[in-house]
Amino acid sequence: MPYPSAVPAAAPESIGSFWLWAVSVLVLLALLVADFVVTRRPHEVSMREAAGWSVFYLALPFVFGGWLWFAYGGGQALDFVTGFVVEKSLSVDNLFVFMLLLTAFAVPAAVQQRVLLYGIVGALVLRAVFIAAGAALLQAGTWAFLVFGLVLFLSAVKILREAIAGEQAVRDVAQLRSVRLLRRLMPVTDDYRGARLTVHEHGRRALTPLALVVVAIFATDVVFAVDSVPAVYGITADPYLVFATNAFALLGLRALYFVLHSALAKLVHLNHGLAIILAFIGVKLVLHWAHGVWPAVPEIPTPLSLVVIALVLATVTVTSLRRRSRDTAVKR
Rank of each mutant, 00 (worst) to 15 (best):
M1R: 15
P2V: 06
A6P: 07
P8G: 00
P8V: 00
P12K: 07
E13G: 15
A22K: 01
V25I: 15
V27K: 12
L29T: 08
A30T: 02
L31C: 04
V33E: 14
V33D: 15
V37P: 13
V38P: 11
R40H: 13
R41Y: 14
E49H: 15
A50S: 10
G52V: 02
W53S: 07
Y57V: 11
Y57S: 05
F64A: 12
G75L: 10
L78E: 10
D79V: 08
G83I: 13
V86R: 10
L90I: 11
V92T: 06
V92N: 07
N94D: 02
V97W: 12
L102F: 03
F105E: 03
P108H: 01
Q112K: 13
G119F: 08
I120G: 06
I120P: 07
R127K: 10
F130E: 14
G141Q: 05
F145I: 09
L154V: 14
L154Q: 14
A156D: 05
V157L: 13
K158L: 14
A165P: 09
Q168T: 15
V170A: 01
R171E: 15
A174W: 12
A174R: 15
Q175W: 11
S178T: 12
V179Q: 00
R180T: 05
L182Q: 02
R184D: 00
R184N: 01
M186V: 12
D191L: 04
T198E: 01
H200A: 01
E201G: 07
E201P: 11
H202S: 08
G203D: 07
P209D: 06
V213H: 02
V213R: 10
V215R: 13
A216R: 07
T220M: 08
T220Y: 11
V222H: 13
V229F: 00
V232N: 05
Y233R: 06
G234W: 03
T236C: 05
D238P: 01
T245G: 11
L250I: 11
L251R: 03
V259I: 03
V259E: 01
L264I: 00
A265G: 08
L267G: 01
V268N: 04
N271Y: 02
H272P: 04
I276F: 05
F280G: 04
L287G: 04
A290V: 03
V293M: 09
P301H: 06
S305M: 11
S305F: 02
L306H: 01
V307I: 09
L313S: 08
T315P: 03
V316N: 01
V318C: 09
V318Q: 09
R323M: 10
S325H: 14
